[in-house]
Amino acid sequence: MIPAAFDYHRADTLDEALKLLKKHGDDAKVLSGGMSLLPMLKLRLASFAHLVDINRVPGLDYIKEEKGTLRIGAMTRQAALERSDVIKSKYPILADAVPLIADPLVRNRGTIGGNVANGDPGNDQPAIMIALGATFIVRGAKERSVAANQFYKGLYDTALARSEILTEIRIPVPPLKSGGAYTKLKRKTGDFAVAAAAVQLTLGKYGAVERAGIALTNAGLTPIEAVDAAKYLVGKMPDEKTIAEAAKMAAAKSAPSADRRGSVEYKKEMARVLTARALHKAVQRAGGS
């Protein structure tokens, strides 16, 4: 399959990329890992007159902790996240998820910036970013930041303007007694989630929940933040009963549609089960019981 014709532009600096986007307006699209964009162009589900490739823009590929913030450059490949010691040791929610995204060949190209900017509810990292309380740094004429839970507007519709580039993801370094987990049900390697749950918790001195972030993948047109479930847990001991209740509340917020991956009822039930499992794992990792 061959995409409809377009003009390819390789940007060598961020400013050059921004200039190209501004010049070509709605006809232009950013190309990063290409693992969602190129298949879409090949299937002719979309077409753009201009692609602006940011693969060679320097300084967008890093994973570093600084002053209480984990900063990840938008062009960081999934394979780099998978190998990162910081991610493995301190961000189990991401360490759980990355090996479940696509397959190793796709992860050698696909980027975290592309995963969160894409706006497909099947993408795994948006829900994780919401659970972690992450912020996206966006460059256009000016630099601005958007909270992950304010970023997703609809199917393939995000807070990004066409002239903007997502440059960095900022995640607050989890305090002591924090734990996270990502649980995903899929039919096979390379499949998007039937349902998946992202959980990030911090426990207080006596083991009660101090902060909770819960979000679901592929459970609606955007990632679904389970605000009620998280609120419910705060101040409570995370035990069998409260976890079961929170999982029920999260699943009630999901609004999946029926497709080859299952019926609405099945997907909602899986969202409940996976949320409960992720909560249990997160509590354990936070050093609770």
Binding site: L38, K42, D53, A79, V106
Partner: peptide, 15 residues
């Protein structure tokens, strides 16, 4: 150095 799916990379990107 990395194995990739060459049906999902543009030739011009390999320059």
């Amino acid at each position: 150095g990395n194995p990739v799916k060459s049906c999902t990379v543009l030739a011009v990107q390999a320059d």
